[in-house]
Write a protein that binds this DNA or RNA. Sequence first.
RNA 1: CGGGCUGUGGCGCAGCUUGGUAGCGCACUUGGUUUGGGACCAAGGGGUCGUCGGUUCAAAUCCGACCAGCCCGACCA
Length: 573
Amino acid sequence: MIRWSQAFIPTLRDDPADADAASHRLLVRAGFIRQLMAGAYSLLPLAMRTRDKIGRIIREEMDAIGGQEFLLPAIQPAEIWQKSGRWEIMGQEMFRLRDRREADIALGMTHEEVFATLAVELNSYRDLPQLWYQVQTKFRDEPRPKSGVLRTREFTMKDSYSFDIDDDGLDRSFENHRGAYLRIFRRMGLDPIPIDASSGAMGGSGSKEFVVKSEAGEDLVVLCPNGDYAANVENATSRLQPVEDPPGPDEPEPFATPGVRTIAALAEFSADATTDRQIKSLFYLIDGELTIALLRGDHGLVEQKLADATGGVDIRAAGAEEIFAAMGAHPGSLGAVGVEGIPIYADHALAGRSNMTTGANIDDQHVRGVDVERDIRVTHWVDLREVEAGEPCPACGEALEVVKAIEVGHIFKLGRRFAEAFGATVLDPDGKPQTITMGSYGIGLERAMAAVAETFHDEAGLMWPVSVAPYEMVITTIGTEEDTHEQASALYRALTAGGVEVILDDRDERPGVKFADAELVGIPFRLVVGPRGLEKGEVEWKPRSGGESQGIPVAEAADHAVAAVEQARSALL
RNA sequence: CGGGCUGUGGCGCAGCUUGGUAGCGCACUUGGUUUGGGACCAAGGGGUCGUCGGUUCAAAUCCGACCAGCCCGACCA
């Protein structure tokens, strides 16, 4: 029998200092988590129970699409990371240490490399497809851990990897995961939205993120209200309104613009140079090489798009002095007209534009009458701009919305990169070696838990969906009478026999304290056993979300409660 | 890494400006009265004031360095 009086459930009366997100505040107050250092949290027994339930849902759905569970080491030799080329790429985000023999060791931040070493043992196309997964601790030295358990440096991830003989097989494995992920998050009570995403450091040919709308989220997601477009702003597009350019001169005309340093200032200075008729010139150092990004004056740059377009790893805005050394002018007077020998990435919105205004690469001078294709040596036409709310959906033209969201899962088509590096091949039906193609798929368990907490709470505390609640029901006793405890214990036994996970709040506390704690912890159902009800032969029934408490005859209480829990569970299947 | 802020019993904070024997609320222990929405009375226990150094007769308080944590911007499950 699990008794609250014996459990470690350290609830707090006050909000913890510096808790930014609601889920963070409540998970701390309700006794689920405690911080040890930046980005490292102890999971207390309540959090363990919830995380286990999330893990169970994930395992069921992974097994349902043919997954086999592994457990790989978190400490890994540098060699395998050097072999894949990611020892350098992962940079500061990878925790590194040396063992007693001075050998370089990595703390695993993901497991493509280790799984690839095992995939070498696959020999025949008949062995494929394979779907391997684990639920395991990951370490990532995040520059800025945030929002409690939403973004940590040590966390539990379900990561899975698919191995297929060809692209069609990879597509099937990818689709299987897509379906499994939707079921997993829905069973947790969430409303997952699959969106197009950048593949980032993972590389590969395609990726989908699964996000949950939330103010605490760190991702911006572009959504069409009709549901036919959903993408991360990192690679979202929209249908552009064409801009009519009045005819311009045969060649660019420089003109003096004393003190004008910004797009807005130039628009003010010159009536012709409205922001959508200016060219914004941004200078970046991409893996050490100076690179120019061009956008329409009123458009913002998405750095991730620039990284994706250039394939750059180390990417940062160039400093004013670095730019001056190369261009002979300072930011505010920069442009790409006549520039040669520097890669120029221009956003599609500049295609076909003429009679534009931009910097002259001479301090305090701009040029007008610029025809982009005539006057600028664009080396790459790419998508660089950030979509804004209200722009037309690329599919249907409806006004797009931009919302904050939490990324709870991400799936990637990796292709053959890792299998190639590790020599993972199988013989095809013709007896010829074929390199395996891989996919990788991840869910952060603690983040998923926080996303549920973020989605389901009110002023009184957490409100767990029954599928992930630490306990499905609490039996709260009132007073210290012997009869109350006997009735409550009998109810506990009946509910347990009925398969319900219940905790008995037998503490010698005032009722208000016990009710408040049960609500803070967020247990979905409550049965109150006390002398007032027992006199009438009743106990009280109350769901955490909504509804007044209701008296139920003692004899029917167990059946009623079991039925209610079973109904709540099946609503989430 | 840039910008802002904070470190004082388990939690939340005051004290610092103007140096002089460390306080409040919650929590905890004991006794008593209570007991259906966060009770009350009484008596207690618990603190290297982040660390190191400096100034001073004397430092939580003034000065310096360092460390840690949080929030806002560049990254990810």
